[in-house]
């Protein structure tokens, strides 16, 4: 397994954001996570990325315990992430945003310019490479989130609602890109409300509710389960 979470618990006062969560992602796999607002999805990412430390439980990467590692160390270990609300380095150019990631998260420092240019071409930002990141449109900001995460050369990519707020066409473009990245061997965990986009990429789905994992499996099957429909879609089964 590339990533393993074993019995992760995390609470903020009375609010439980992770309740005995077990999760495993294989090399090259794409896993989707859904859940209502406040289900603990982003907190789960923060636990994986090292921004939060669990109250109990173990996070493993390649079988090594990384629970005690900082966010920075986990980036270097191969975990890349995007933020739900894009957080570009606004005063830097698009290229400089990637350069930071390549120089600090990406291991050796040779050929960074070529590497960044390659990621920029891939994500459709090459033409805007020397423009200021703070002036980008929403779609380009989302692309930049993705590009910057890719510049750290991750083995596992955490995508947090990257399709939210985009038009149908923009969303389609982004999905094609994510599928391509996954096809190149990068494992993906994707939190998304736009279910049709999510399902065209992921092969497995996890549903969270109040920090608990309530369902896991093939997307279509999981979505058909009554507890998922009730929790996520708010649909009560009709009484016969």
């Amino acid at each position: 397994m590339l990533l393993e979470l074993a019995r992760i618990n995390k609470r903020f006062g009375a609010v439980v954001v992770a309740d005995e969560v077990d999760l495993a992602v294989a090399d090259g796999e794409a896993l989707g996570i859904i859940g209502a607002n406040g289900a603990g999805k982003t907190s789960l990412f923060n636990l994986v990325a090292g921004v939060l430390k669990p109250d109990s439980g173990v996070v493993r990467l390649d079988g090594h315990d990384i629970t005690g590692l900082t966010a920075r160390a986990r980036c270097k270990a191969g975990i890349g992430r995007t933020f739900q609300v894009p957080r570009p380095f606004e005063s830097l150019s698009v290229f400089e945003n990637l350069l930071v990631a390549a120089q600090f998260g990406g291991g050796d420092h040779r050929g960074e310019a070529d590497e960044c240019a390659e990621v920029l071409r891939h994500t459709g930002l090459l033409g805007k490479a020397n423009g200021i990141a703070g002036k980008l449109t929403l779609l380009d900001r989302k692309r930049l989130e993705l590009a910057r995460a890719l510049a750290t050369r991750p083995r596992l990519l955490l995508l947090d609602e990257i399709a939210g707020g985009l038009t149908e066409a923009e969303c389609g473009e982004l999905v094609a890109l994510i599928r391509e990245i996954n096809g190149e061997g990068v494992s993906i965990i994707w939190i998304e409300h736009i279910v049709h986009a999510l399902f065209s990429v992921v092969s497995r789905l996890v549903v969270l509710e109040f920090g608990r994992k309530i369902a896991e499996g093939v997307p279509a099957e999981v979505m058909a389960r009554p507890e998922v429909r009730r929790s996520y879609l708010g649909i009560e089964e009709e009484v016969a």
Binding site: A49, V51, T70, A71, R72, C75, K76, G80, R81, F83, R87, P88, F89, E90, S91, L92, E96, N97, L99, V100, A101, Q103, F104, G105, G106, R148, A149, A151, T152
Partner: peptide
């Protein structure tokens, strides 16, 4: 370069290895 990134956002800077 790292300084500029930190100035613009510490969490994001840390997430890319700074």
């Amino acid at each position: 370069l790292a300084l500029s990134a930190v100035r613009d956002g510490e969490t994001a800077a840390e997430s890319v290895g700074v």
